[in-house]
């Protein structure tokens, strides 16, 4: 029964992964036609590459802030719809809409909204003589813009998983607390939130790994700019592989991203296990 699944994982996940690792240990270059084994030299080069280190910093900023806002927003909407104003549950369908918009379209929507000459937001504030500062032309403004676009597109994923988790929490607990005189806010912080922590950890992990990959938002909204301010690590890998023809170096960056995601997953899984054991 398991054989087809094992074969599929083997062919489509394990073999490419081994291949990528093997490639990262060479100096394979499309134009120079090098193809020698050079051990871990690409990884040493990465460690000493300021642009790579800067790309990791950009990636962490985008991931940490992106995941934080997505989790907060998704959780608040889920709890709001499920616990605070249940009669608005029908709104779930509307809140889910951004999740089904393809990433390229998300990027184009937010590029238009944040380009002053195209944006209805700017037109609106102009009515009151308020000038909205351009987001995409400053370093932190551009990072903020990508975080906003990613949050908009991805909070529904968090919301859906937290809604599912909330279904699993017995309403008896809330009712008992309410009988004891607890307010809704106290119930949320003292009962609901602690019970949601395993789900929150897992959803944050999923989103964190996903944010390591957000290429279309960067490619379409900023092209890695201004300057190189939004060249996150996977964008840097793309530049090395497709623009600079340095395939083995790009593979080394991909191996780094894989190991980074694997290590984060390991710690989150361990934390989750401890919470469940407690």
């Amino acid at each position: 029964m398991l054989l087809p699944a094992v074969l599929a994982v083997g062919i489509f996940a394990i073999i490419p992964l081994i291949g990528m690792f093997a490639l990262s240990l060479t100096d394979f270059h499309l134009i120079k036609k090098w193809d020698q084994d050079i051990g871990f030299h690409n990884f040493v080069k990465l460690y000493n590459n300021k642009r790579f280190i800067a790309s990791v910093e950009v990636m962490l900023l985008l991931s940490v802030f992106g995941v934080f806002f997505q989790v907060v927003m998704g959780t608040l909407i889920a709890v709001g719809l499920e616990k605070i104003i249940p009669r608005w549950r029908f709104m779930r369908g509307i809140f889910v809409v951004p999740f089904v918009v393809p990433a390229v379209a998300v990027a184009l929507i937010w590029l238009s909204l944040l380009t002053p000459t195209l944006s209805p937001i700017n037109d609106f504030f102009e009515l009151f003589n308020i000038t909205v500062p351009p987001f995409l032309t400053t370093q932190y403004g551009a990072i903020t813009a990508i975080v906003i676009a990613d949050t908009w597109a991805s909070y529904p994923f968090v919301m859906l998983l937290i809604l599912a988790a909330l279904q699993g929490i017995s309403s008896d607990l809330d009712e008992a607390a309410a009988l004891d005189g607890a307010t809704k806010i106290q119930i949320f912080f003292k009962i609901t939130l602690p019970l949601l922590i395993p789900a929150l950890l897992m959803v944050a992990l999923f989103r964190f790994i996903e944010t390591l990959k957000h290429f279309p938002l960067i490619y379409i909204m900023t092209k890695g700019g201004p300057g190189r301010s939004t060249q996150a690590t996977n964008y840097f890998a793309y530049i090395q592989t497709f623009q600079n023809s340095n395939v083995s170096y790009g593979a080394a960056i991909a191996v780094f991203l894989f190991l980074f995601a694997a290590i984060i997953s390991f710690f989150v899984a361990r934390a989750n296990a401890r919470i469940n054991d407690a």
Binding site: T115, P116, T117, T131, P134, T137, A142, T222
Partner: peptide, 12 residues
């Protein structure tokens, strides 16, 4: 230039 020019491509 117009506001936001620093990120303009041909579409903008």
């Amino acid at each position: 230039g117009p506001p936001g020019i620093g990120n303009f491509n041909y579409n903008e």
